[in-house]
Design a protein around this nucleic acid. Structure first.
Lengths: 157, 157
DNA sequence: CAATTTATGTCAACACCTTGCCATATTTAG
DNA sequence: CTAAATATGGCAAGGTGTTGACATAAATTG
């Protein structure tokens, strides 16, 4: 029976992929919960943490548009409307109309937002250490590579 | 200057962890969107897909309680109330009170639910193939191992 | 230049997820 | 056996995510 080998391979591959996606779903659920818990005293969710991180990067001093944030975080513009509204109300960001294009708004970090970003760094570092106990940097890099391939494939489709 | 080596290592480790979590957030956003899109004609979300998968496993013929599903999927009981309500309305699952414990409900797949689970398999296989183009099984197994470590660490905290 | 097309951000409706609270049922303690 | 503690599932409020529809602004086309 010369056929079973490839059939077994396919079946194994499918089971592995199945497990991979299931673990991804599980992991992200618990990451959002645990991450938000780690920043509880600052009243910042993992999503707001991502936005603060995006706006704090070198080269983003002038701010980002909603579209740019949407492309960067891979969430819809419409979703950002809500998140940015809450962050604006909290005083972490400001929306200012671009004088050169009345449609777009520059989202910038306020001084308060920048200060909060600095303040949460120790909690974030602790969160990383606790979550990744026993995971070496090489494994992390391999996972990053897989995720980037995954994202690339999905963007194409 | 004998100190810089370890400081550089820490900084590199932090940057790597940072990127890992950011990619995880990005990836899951696009996975949920693309996955739900792949099952669009069946009107099933990635979450409902997870529930169908959980109830279709060998050994689950007798159903699972809400608590068991909650432990398995790593989401809250309260969240499942909503998801299961929608799936019940769609006719995919049934909730029946456990005669031996009036508090708990056995969640079981209906015949219609089992049929849908069979029907979506080709779409799921296609989704796996498209998403994981260029990613070999070994890389997937490494990522699974990392995610399981991550989940284990977070459950402990 | 006027008309159409495209781009940007928002609103609305709905699914998903969390926490806090509660009713009911079971178990444990006294 | 009764009273307290615990377990199970659901309700409510609010943040996060999606798609569809929309107003307005800019760019393109005739």
């Amino acid at each position: 029976m010369p056929d079973t080998s490839s059939r077994h391979q396919d079946s194994s591959q499918h089971d592995t992929s199945n497990k991979l996606f299931f673990r991804l779903f599980q992991a992200v659920n618990i990451i959002h919960r645990t991450g938000t818990q780690a920043l509880k005293e600052f009243d910042i969710s993992t999503q707001q943490w991502s936005v603060l991180g995006a706006l704090s990067r070198d080269g983003c001093e002038g701010g980002m548009t909603v579209n740019e944030l949407s492309d960067y975080l891979l969430v819809s513009r419409q979703n950002l409307t809500g998140v940015l509204g809450r962050m604006e109300r909290a005083g972490y960001i400001a929306r200012q109309v671009n004088p050169r294009d009345q449609r777009s708004r520059h989202i910038t970090l306020t001084p308060r937002g920048g200060k909060v970003w600095q303040m949460i760094q120790p909690a974030i570092a602790g969160f990383y250490r606790a979550s990744l106990q026993g995971v070496d940097e090489g494994q992390q890099l391999q996972t990053i590579a897989l995720l980037e391939d995954l994202i690339g494939n999905m963007k194409r489709s």
